[in-house]
Amino acid sequence: MRFRPDHELHRRRASRNYGLGAVLLAFAALVFGLSLVKARENGVPGLRQAGAGAPAITAGEAGR
């Protein structure tokens, strides 16, 4: 069975949908990349402590 070829109208709508999809993906990628860079540059407070080798729970806290 053969489908009818797409109408010009459908091609234009498809270009709009794919274009918008690509823009949204690019936006998500920018925000994700920016989050990684900012986290690395400024550090995330909780992560920095753990990364610096400090124990997650101090001895005093463990004894309580």
Binding site: E8, R12, S15, G19
Partner: peptide, 15 residues
């Protein structure tokens, strides 16, 4: 009736 020529593609929004 819809004038198909007037349906915008992505390029029109980019323009």
């Amino acid at each position: 009736s819809i004038n198909h020529e007037l349906e915008a593609g992505f390029g029109d929004y980019f323009a």
